[in-house]
């Protein structure tokens, strides 16, 4: 492609670390855009990116989170397009990004499908994944879409309340939620949290990776066709899931991922013990340990 520079946005920092890693390996210049609020709460990943030789640019515009990092990355990209590749980190943005990201992420779903068939000999009853932009979820869901008996459950960030600005649940149809409406943001038509005049709403989530006002367009499609269900977990439920997963499974999940834990428990309760479900443990929680420790002390 003749590009010597790679840029990316990151919320939780996972995509930033991954991008910085490949750039270090291949000797490419790497710039990561990250909202100031996310730089604050995901300090460990900022340090990891810097260790890997990436330049982390703090974005102070707007809500200082993922959406604003994407805006800055897009501005950089259109300015430096001749020598820069924008490695978008979620299944959103203009076509063909949602398709490309889904394609690469669907390795998760392909392997999960093969694995569960070899281990249990049958299809899972449900797949459960957290949904910010929705790349991990669409990657898991995609190879199962034709398997109509498998429930697909996406979990959005319910944050700390139902009114606009307090959550990041794009399918939330509550009267003052700002959700449940189609809009256009960053080159994609999808469900977008917004005010009645079409200004993009602020969002809140305890997890940086789910703290985003739009959702990948393929999730909007799966929602509208009824193929997938979308529910939400609050900040408090995510913290409970975080601890539960650590204690029961010996795995410390990312706060994003933690949103999927309690819904998984609820779904599992309805099923016979020999049935199987798949929960996508999309990210590890090292980056969040300090944040959770601080919250517990308060």
């Amino acid at each position: 492609m003749q590009k010597e520079r790679v840029i990316a946005e990151t919320g939780a920092g996972q995509h930033g670390v991954a991008t910085a890693t490949v750039c270090a390996l291949f000797g490419l210049k790497c710039v990561i855009y990250m909202g100031a609020e996310d730089v604050r709460r995901q300090g460990l990943n900022v340090f990891r990116m810097q260790l890997l030789g990436a330049e982390v640019r703090t974005v102070n515009a707007g809500t200082r989170t993922l959406k604003d990092a994407i805006n800055e990355a897009m501005r950089d990209w259109v300015t430096n397009v001749h020598h820069t590749y924008y490695l978008l980190g979620s299944a959103l943005g203009p076509h063909p990004y949602p398709l490309m990201v889904r394609e690469f992420q669907s390795v998760i779903g392909r392997e999960a499908r093969e694995h569960i068939l070899s281990v249990s000999g049958r299809m899972p009853r449900a797949l459960i994944a957290c949904v910010g932009g929705g790349s991990n979820a669409i990657g898991l869901f995609h190879p199962f879409i034709a398997d109509a008996q498998v429930r697909l459950i996406g979990v959005e960030a319910g944050g700390r309340g139902d009114s606009s600005g307090e959550h990041a649940a794009r399918f939330h149809t509550g009267a003052t939620s700002g959700g449940g409406r189609i809009g256009v943001l960053q080159g994609t038509m999808s469900y977008v949290l917004q005010d009645p005049g079409g200004q993009i709403a602020r969002t809140h989530s305890i997890s940086a990776g789910l703290d985003y006002s739009a959702i990948g367009p393929e999730h909007a499609f799966l929602h509208d066709t009824g193929r997938a269900e979308y529910i939400r977990s609050t900040d408090v439920e995510a913290l409970e899931g975080f601890e539960l997963c650590a204690k029961l499974e010996g795995i410390i999940p990312a706060l994003e991922t933690s949103h999927a834990i309690l819904p998984a428990v609820r779904v599992a309760r309805e099923l016979p013990a020999d049935d199987a479900i798949i929960v996508n443990l999309s990210g590890r929680g090292d980056k969040d340990v300090q944040l959770v420790a601080d919250l517990q002390r308060r």
Binding site: I182, G183, G197, G198, I200
Partner: peptide, 9 residues
């Protein structure tokens, strides 16, 4: 204008 305000209007 950007498209979203027009679309919502």
């Amino acid at each position: 204008s950007y498209f979203n305000p027009l679309l919502q209007f």
